[in-house]
Design a protein around this nucleic acid. Sequence first.
DNA 1: CAGTAGACGTGACAAATGTCATGCGCAATC
DNA 2: GATTGCGCATGACATTTGTCACGTCTACTG
Lengths: 236, 236
Amino acid sequence: MSASDAASMTAGEPTGRGGATEPLSADSGEPTLGIRLLVADDQALVRGALIALLDLEPDLHIVAEADRGDEVLALALEHRPDVALLDVEMPGLDGIAVTAQLRAAVPSCRVLVVTTFGRPGYLKRAMAAGASGFVVKDTPARQLAETVRRVHAGLRVVDPALAAESLASGDNPLSARESDILRAAQRGGSVADIAADLFLSEGTVRNYLSSAIGKTAARSRAEAVRIAEENGWLLN
Amino acid sequence: MSASDAASMTAGEPTGRGGATEPLSADSGEPTLGIRLLVADDQALVRGALIALLDLEPDLHIVAEADRGDEVLALALEHRPDVALLDVEMPGLDGIAVTAQLRAAVPSCRVLVVTTFGRPGYLKRAMAAGASGFVVKDTPARQLAETVRRVHAGLRVVDPALAAESLASGDNPLSARESDILRAAQRGGSVADIAADLFLSEGTVRNYLSSAIGKTAARSRAEAVRIAEENGWLLN
DNA sequence: CAGTAGACGTGACAAATGTCATGCGCAATC
DNA sequence: GATTGCGCATGACATTTGTCACGTCTACTG
């Protein structure tokens, strides 16, 4: 189980969707009509299910799938999808970083970010990175295909509720270093642990924690971590 | 968006899968042959995708779907599925509690728990509650239908790697009260906050925290929370 | 019934945490 | 070229945590 299964599909798959042996479709090689799709999600079951769902649409064709962020670029270069469906939380490289990669290297490929968590910061950063759409896994399944078509047509598709929340929550107030410290604090170690992790003095760590606590309007380190997580301020 | 969309399917849907307007299948009423399935997952997109995936199998028929744990029992009583696919993390009632409900009220319905997180404690508790199978969303999609058939045939299906991990990790060492305190501590509040939440004295809270920290072999409250979360000791 | 274990409590004490003032160097900005 | 913001650091201080010893009450079990 885990990644080894799907990871093997990365190399040496000249035709069709990367290495799929599933009897989901009877594609013969690379389609030239309709919308070519790449699907990236680390959860194999979810990925497979999304593919099954999208493959029901006659105009949508899955040409590649990935279970890690750092595999997407190579697959996109090889299979030239029109739209890439990217999860945010992925091993290797997060979906937002992948979005930036794709926009730079494969400009013809539009990006639709699909995520479990409607973190306001995710939306903001995804759009800044060049994504064309952003939907949470909460949205009805029957809308997904239409969303893909809209994105392919050049429209921007964003969950309105999430967009409002994103505007309300404001920008990430944390400096890069403060985010680093909070990320290191996620595991629950002491100031000394964090300092050792980041090669800083304990005093410096305490200062950053203090200012992060202040900026997040929290009242303890743990609360600051939680708030920063919920707002999507701890990516990267 | 959110729950309101799918929640409306709970009431007044006499036939077919609970209120699905999606063009995924052309079922006519309740099938009597093959395996009747109920799918419960709070993420509409994932639920819809799973349904699309399973609906591809000619012998599997989705007869009901739910986006909340506390809706499953009523739907199962109405639609009499042979197998229920349950997510663990759901609003209303977690999948393990639902498993216990179903085993008691609808003994003919076997339960397959499908979860994002391979927490050892989840597996243990799911099996204790009467689940017939337990798979993580990491497993290849093409295996899911076969797993459903196995469960329907009365076999127990458990991810071997997870089973090993579960045995190695031992039982939940926390007393019910200690779990309560850790759960209250998840939000990141102070001792005073937790004490106020649970109507305890601050000293008592500190004592529970201290013993929980000891039992989890952690070195701080935050670490104890993290360890307990990862082991699946904070459900219920 | 005695023994045990958990829920709940108090008080005291050492260690960790969070705050604040203050400082230096560097880069961007005006 | 002065100002500003950030990274990094120190030291002092009050508060919060975590630990320990000790106690009561209740429920279960041999």
